[in-house]
């Protein structure tokens, strides 16, 4: 049987576009103080969330976000067929342990900070493929768990560079259904792993920008749509450095990024918040989507959104062994019908 829902080389177009029926976001205190503080469902007072370790707090954030997203539709975790989730920690523990407590059938994903798009496109394919009717796509990150895993102990006095990014403390969960009311996922482009031999562990934007350019180019090429088709093309967490590079790369590919292009890592914080290049982490794209972006879609301020979540597939072990940092980006088109 031919793959009739595939278009071009790496894009899928949904026959019955799955519906985002509800969603929820939880963010940390710093994100709450940012420019979109009023658009998130829940702002944590501190980084511990009533737990005794940051890892447990991150797990709880994911769990509570999934429950909150379902409860908006008066649903319980048992009512969803699959949880698709991932995070940044080794062995994706935040997701695994959240799934343990939620008791839902679970597929763990790892796409670094691109996870929200990976979960959404996988879920959309499962639904449009006729395998299930309701899934939850979720992801999270926590500033302190990421710092200690990828960088230094948090109390160590290290100096950040201007390209350093601040890992977002935040979680986002989306209920995706075959039937319902809400914006729909119309198509998705599965990204390739692109490595342009960048090896600066304090600069993820430069490592990820080529992957974002590759996926965006593939998306427009596969679907054969004009570069101003979307009201907003938003990348996950390229931040200021990566965004500036991507704009150049897109122009080279004959796509015009302005004025409908932005980046969640640039948007989520204010310049004055001391985040250097901007935000990063799975939670960055996830809570911007499940907070302000989908809110704008419901209001009709955005009708066609292309979310290009970006991930730096960085491993400290591999970097110390001399490996470079590969990047990946997945694109999900969300449209009001």
């Amino acid at each position: 049987m031919p793959a009739k829902k595939k278009k071009g080389i790496q894009t899928v177009v949904f026959e019955n576009p799955p519906v985002l029926t509800s969603w929820a976001s939880i963010v940390g205190p710093k994100e709450g103080e940012g420019p979109w503080g009023g658009d998130f469902d829940w702002i944590l007072e501190d980084y511990m969330f009533g737990e005794d370790t940051w890892e447990k707090a991150e797990n709880k954030m994911l769990r509570e976000t999934v429950k909150l997203a379902l409860s908006k539709n008066n649903l319980e975790p048992d009512d969803a067929e699959i949880l698709l989730a991932g995070d940044l920690l080794n062995q994706v523990i935040s997701s695994n342990f959240a799934a343990r407590e939620l008791g839902m059938p679970f597929l763990g994903l790892y796409g670094a900070c691109s996870t929200v798009a990976e979960a959404l496109l996988t879920g959309a394919m499962l639904i449009d493929g006729g395998f299930c009717e309701r899934i939850v796509a979720a992801t999270c990150s926590h500033h302190h768990t990421a710092e200690r895993q990828f960088r230094f102990p948090t109390e160590q006095g290290t100096q950040p560079t201007p390209s350093t990014q601040w890992t977002v403390t935040g979680a986002g969960a989306i209920v995706l259904e075959f039937l319902g009311v809400g914006p729909r996922i119309t198509s998705a482009t599965i990204g390739r792993v692109i490595d342009m031999k960048q090896n600066d562990m304090t600069d993820m934007g430069s490592a990820m920008a080529p992957a974002a350019a590759d996926t965006i180019k593939a998306h427009f090429h596969d679907l054969d749509i004009p570069s101003d088709y979307y009201d907003l093309v938003v990348t996950g967490d390229l931040a200021k450095v990566g965004m500036a590079i991507l704009e150049r790369l897109l122009v080279r590919e004959g796509l015009t990024p302005k004025p409908n292009y932005s980046d969640c890592g640039v948007l989520i914080f204010d310049e004055s918040q001391g985040v250097n290049s901007g935000g990063s982490g799975c939670g960055c794209a996830a809570c911007m989507l499940c907070g302000p972006l989908l809110k704008k879609m419901v209001k009709g301020e955005i009708n066609k959104l292309l979310l290009v979540a970006t991930g730096a597939l960085m491993s400290p072990t591999a970097s110390y062994q001399g490996e470079t940092i590969p990047g990946i980006a997945h694109a999900v088109a969300i449209e009001n019908y």
Binding site: P162, Q198, R248
Partner: peptide, 11 residues
């Protein structure tokens, strides 16, 4: 690509 990055990366 690295030349481009070095151009755009803030010092």
């Amino acid at each position: 690509y690295d030349t481009l990055v070095q151009q755009l990366k803030p010092k």
